[in-house]
């Protein structure tokens, strides 16, 4: 990166370090922190959406829908996320390609499964075989987001299911007394009020989600753990300009600091949101805020 970096072997001390830390590889490492943050930023709302629908389904009056909601919650919560990640992405990818294959190539007569191979017509490939690498990466990333969202959606559904039941019965009864229909009451009374009950659980879930991101490399995304392992490993001078011993400890230490800072920031933020949400609610927290002198 810097002009003096042409011959790293001649350098030492801080100048060497400044060159070492700005190689293309390290740039990819720093970039992967962005990937992780982006994944979190997208996954959280999507998982929330999954959770909301899961919870609504689980308390639905239509029996198959209720079963579906409850099975989803129980099944995904019962399996370690790591086991889920190891086969789900390939399954999801094949499912998408199979669907596209059925729609786009109806005249195709050969079987999709040929022995061990999974073969679909060229037009059904996802992304297309001719697409540039960044499209493949975006697609892989989208699959990863989706997989994370399904797993954490189940946990979010569980939290929200509890939160919906925690809204005082009297509130719903009052809504009925005002002549609201079930749907109106659900939308106007239950949903706005359930958040304050759901937030501690959802906040915890967010913390768990942050700490699940080291598993991202299982989903084929080159994340911070992938790069930390790759670069921390000892390097011989034959294959790099910057040979060094086993430095994995330092790279993992950087990860540790990153996660601790991120957790702390999240904690502070969640505390603030909780304060705002409790305002005017029929809980002890809300009562305390009301009583406190302004």
């Amino acid at each position: 990166m810097f002009s003096y970096c042409t011959d790293p072997n001649a350098l030492s001390g801080l100048t060497w370090l400044s060159c070492y830390l700005t190689t293309g590889k390290h740039m990819a490492f720093y970039f992967s922190f962005g990937t992780v943050l982006l994944l979190l930023a997208i996954t959280a709302p999507v998982a929330l959406l999954f959770g909301f629908f899961g919870a609504s389904a689980a308390r639905s009056h239509i029996l198959p829908l209720r079963w579906f909601g409850k099975t989803y919650i129980a099944l995904v919560r019962g399996v370690p996320d790591i086991a889920f990640f190891l086969f789900f992405v390939i399954a999801l990818d094949q499912m998408i390609e199979w669907t596209r294959h059925k729609i786009l190539c109806p005249e195709w007569t050969e079987p999709v499964r040929q022995g061990n191979d999974f073969v679909v017509c060229q037009a059904a490939k996802m992304p297309l075989g001719s697409a540039p690498q960044w499209v493949h990466e975006t697609y892989g990333f989208t699959l990863a987001v989706f997989t994370f969202a399904i797993v954490f959606g189940a946990f979010a559904a569980n939290v929200m299911f509890g939160a919906m039941r925690a809204v005082p019965r009297a509130q719903m009864e009052t809504a009925e007394a005002y002549g609201m229909t079930r749907r109106q009451a659900f939308r106007r009374i239950l949903v706005p009020q359930m958040w304050v009950y759901a937030l501690p659980g959802l906040g915890n879930l967010w913390m768990v989600l942050i700490k699940a991101t080291p598993l991202l490399f299982l989903l084929g995304v080159e994340d911070i753990v992938y790069w930390a392992r790759e670069m921390g490993g000892s390097k011989t001078s034959k294959f790099t300009e910057y040979p060094h011993g086993d430095w994995r400890m330092w790279y993992f230490f950087a990860l540790l600091v990153f996660y601790l800072c991120f957790t702390r920031i999240s904690e502070i933020f969640l505390e603030r949101v909780m304060k705002r949400l409790t305002k005017g609610q029929a809980t002890t927290g809300g009562e305390a805020q009301r009583k406190a002198p302004a």
Partner: peptide
């Protein structure tokens, strides 16, 4: 990308 000399990631982050 982790098995030199067959394949590895070089300093600029590419397969080499």
């Amino acid at each position: 990308g982790a098995y030199p000399p067959y394949n590895f990631i070089n300093d600029s982050g590419e397969v080499d």
